[in-house]
Design a protein around this nucleic acid. Structure first.
Length: 273
DNA sequence: AAGTTCTTCAACCGCTCCTCG
DNA sequence: GCGAGGAGCGGTTGAAGAACT
């Protein structure tokens, strides 16, 4: 038994809204308000639409003072900065941008800003001409990487945007301070997803980091000729995001192959296939 | 000019959260 | 305290138009 659907899909119209439907919905809400009940609204307004569809149409398109497109540089910076701080909390980000909807911002991020960030990451990581780089450089790059916030059970604090300066072009500078570095661990610096011990690729054992080559940033050859990489991964399955905290002296020591998704055992420091 | 690929964004889906009885 | 139902949210899809070959 699934849950009762909010409306009968066979009875409601779907797809793009016609100007007539827009007018009916707009006039009804302007005259009566939503009544705090979107499910009942379409019937009252005489629309053959699902209540959720009406809500979405109103909030994302018909609502007064909505701005579409034409994001300013300042808005770009705010979105980038907030994404850096709180991740894909589009509704929270939208609340900081008057006239913008979460859907608009989400689309804008996915089509424009995400690409820009990817390019910025690639540029920041481009190996030097002799194809080697120092460990210090790698540590700097890793520290400068934008990263999603660590999981937290504490309430989300909405940043006060006006008191902070964000620049998209300078997006690699983290707004969130990096976690404190332990002086005793020598396992590198990075972050990714933590897979609960019993369920990673059917293997039991210690925690493992899932590395997904498609999301991993480029490997870098360091002075001694060995390969290093910071990384950013989406992982898959039932995973919990976490920050791996590594020491500052040796940033990474893993992953000499960048082929398909692989797992890295943080305890044995070996790749698990 | 025609076909193909890419980009954009409105809309849908399914999930979680919240409220109320 | 519990369950039902509505609201809200984020991820994803797909149609339409633009750009490219």
């Amino acid at each position: 038994m699934g849950r009762t659907p909010c409306c009968d899909k066979a009875q409601v119209k779907r797809g793009p809204w016609s100007p007539e439907e827009d007018m009916v919905l707009k006039k009804y809400i302007e005259g009566h308000g939503t009544g705090g009940n979107w499910i009942a609204l379409p019937q009252k307004a005489g629309l053959k639409r699902c209540g959720k569809s009406c809500r979405l149409r109103w909030l994302n398109y018909l609502r007064p003072d909505i701005k579409h497109g034409g994001f300013t540089d300042e808005e770009d910076d705010i979105i980038c900065g907030l994404y850096n701080n709180i991740g894909s909390r589009w509704s929270v980000i939208a609340s900081q941008l008057p006239g913008r909807t979460d859907n608009d911002i989400k689309n804008y991020w996915n089509t424009k800003l995400k690409k820009r960030r990817t390019m910025a990451m690639a540029a920041a990581q481009a190996p030097s001409s002799n194809n080697t780089t120092s460990i210090d450089t790698i540590v700097d790059r890793i520290n400068d990487f934008p990263r999603p916030p660590p999981p937290s059970t504490s309430p989300v604090v909405i940043p006060i945007v006006k008191d902070e300066t964000y620049t998209c072009d300078d997006f690699l500078k983290p707004v969130v301070p990096s976690p404190p570095v332990s002086a005793t661990t020598d396992t590198g610096l990075g972050f990714g997803r933590y897979d609960s011990p019993p369920v990673v690729a059917g293997l039991a054992g210690p925690p493992r980091v899932q590395l997904n080559a498609s999301d991993a940033s480029s490997l870098v050859t360091v002075d001694d000729g060995s390969l290093y990489s910071d990384w950013w991964t989406n992982g898959s399955g039932d995973t919990d995001e976490f920050f791996l905290e590594f020491g500052g002296e040796v940033p990474m020591e893993f992953l000499t192959s960048s082929s398909d998704a692989s797992f890295f055992d943080t305890e044995t420091r070996s790749q698990v296939t």
